[in-house]
């Protein structure tokens, strides 16, 4: 009788219940409806793209630092053109009183090299 049972099992195995075309269509419709959309994997570089100015400002440490540098540059140009007299006193003070003839950049070592 067990052999009969095994024969029945083999018969059932050989003839699987085929799903109807209707249910297959429903399953595939479900699959299409739930398939992930858009980029499945995040892009390798997901950082937002920076504008040219933002990149430039970033190089100098942000827009605030850049504004400070720009102010200093403008002030320098202004001072250069206007040449205030008080500034002349500072820059001309040393040069007017004494003329500099020679600057010894390499100190003379001969004093140390003489033999006793």
């Amino acid at each position: 009788m067990m052999d009969d049972l095994d024969a029945l099992f083999a018969q059932a195995k050989a003839k699987p219940m085929a799903p109807s075309a209707a249910v297959m269509a429903r399953v595939l419709a479900d699959a299409a409806a739930h398939q992930p959309q858009g980029q499945a994997w995040p892009a390798a570089d997901a950082r937002p793209k920076l504008g040219l100015f933002a990149q430039f400002a970033g190089f100098f440490g942000g827009a605030g630092a850049l504004a400070g540098m720009a102010s200093a540059a403008m002030a320098g140009l202004f001072i250069g053109y206007v040449q205030p007299s008080s500034l002349d006193l500072v820059t001309g003070a040393g040069a007017a009183s004494a003329s500099l003839e020679q600057v010894e950049l390499l100190p003379d070592l001969s004093a140390f090299l003489t033999e006793e």
């Binding site: 297959m24 992930p36 499945a40």
Partner: peptide, 27 residues
């Protein structure tokens, strides 16, 4: 592949699994 938007993967997977599931649940 299905999760990564392959258009054919779902069909193939459904054709593999559905007969087994219908057969099992049917019995």
């Amino acid at each position: 592949l299905y999760a990564n938007k392959d258009p054919d993967a779902a069909r193939l997977l459904a054709h593999r699994l559905m007969p087994r599931l219908v057969g099992y649940a049917g019995r």
